[in-house]
Design a protein around this nucleic acid. Structure first.
Lengths: 148, 148
DNA sequence: CGTGTTGTCTTGACTCATTCAAGAAAATGG
DNA sequence: CCATTTTCTTGAATGAGTCAAGACAACACG
């Protein structure tokens, strides 16, 4: 059975109609985690031929709302999507080149996910973004690690 | 001595020239934490009269780079700024109305701020955003808390 | 298998936060 | 007070994302 039938099932169990653009978007996000909308549009078009950008926006919104995708948007970046969901993982973002990598929470479950004072908010999710520099950018900007 | 002289000192110690727009922006952000650029522009104009939006953008960028302000931008929101810096505090954002409140980290220092696998990244900051519903929105959408 | 209903996709225009560029004005150092 | 350098003004441009109306396709039902 093809990989796309898995996506088809995901769509059906989320009560969403199965359409070619939707399967293509699911496939694209699975294949390119943390891709932005434009890259996804490109991947979908490579797969299906011409597809309107509006369709991709609609599909991404529908799939995100249905919980099949997760949308992340670090400051200064455009919206990005990933298919790894429901496992409490977080992200490291490179300040220099913007790459995103997944990280699991160091302290097991959800330690700092319960703030001391919730100000009357009822909290349903804690999102953690680690900011730093990826090894490539660190190497590029400082070829010889200072020792003096 | 006026409150603005404090901001003047902040600017000088950050090696930034002291200009009326900069003092006004610092004042505005102190007075309206989590304000977006447009609100800040409004506050600055109420203070000084006509000021170009470009100036406010430039000032906000300069102050953020200098570390006098912190920029936050939850997904789906425009850029917002705050003056509380360097104290490892985080934010709760209401999914419904977008209000932002400050929260301190529950577990003291910086617990989950050291990911298990940093993928070669050198991390300098961990940003935590709690997503939920503020008490006002919770009340509005569900006047009678379910008890049955 | 055909048909109707409902939800999805296409097309095309539009909004608005943010950025770019060039010149005028103001802030610091001497 | 003048020169230098940075900042502010003006005006235009960029680009992610949204809105709206109609064409089209997926699914349920007979």
């Amino acid at each position: 059975m093809s990989a796309s039938s898995t996506y088809e099932q995901q769509l059906r169990s989320a009560d969403l109609r199965v359409t070619r653009p939707r399967v293509a978007v699911l496939t694209a996000v699975h294949d390119h985690p943390h891709a932005d909308t434009d890259s996804i549009l490109g991947a979908v078009r490579a797969d299906l031929g011409e597809v309107s950008h509006q369709a991709v926006y609609d599909v991404l919104k529908a799939l995100t709302t249905a919980g099949l995708l997760r949308r992340i948007q670090p400051s200064g970046s455009v919206a990005r999507y990933e298919s790894r969901i429901g496992d409490n993982h977080h992200h490291v973002v490179c300040r220099s080149c913007g790459v995103i990598a997944d990280v699991d929470c160091a302290v097991g479950g959800a330690p700092c996910l319960t703030p001391s004072d919730h100000h009357g908010f009822s909290i349903d999710e804690a999102e953690v973004i680690y900011w730093g520099t990826c090894s490539d950018c660190a190497t590029a900007s400082q070829p010889t690690p200072a020792t003096h």
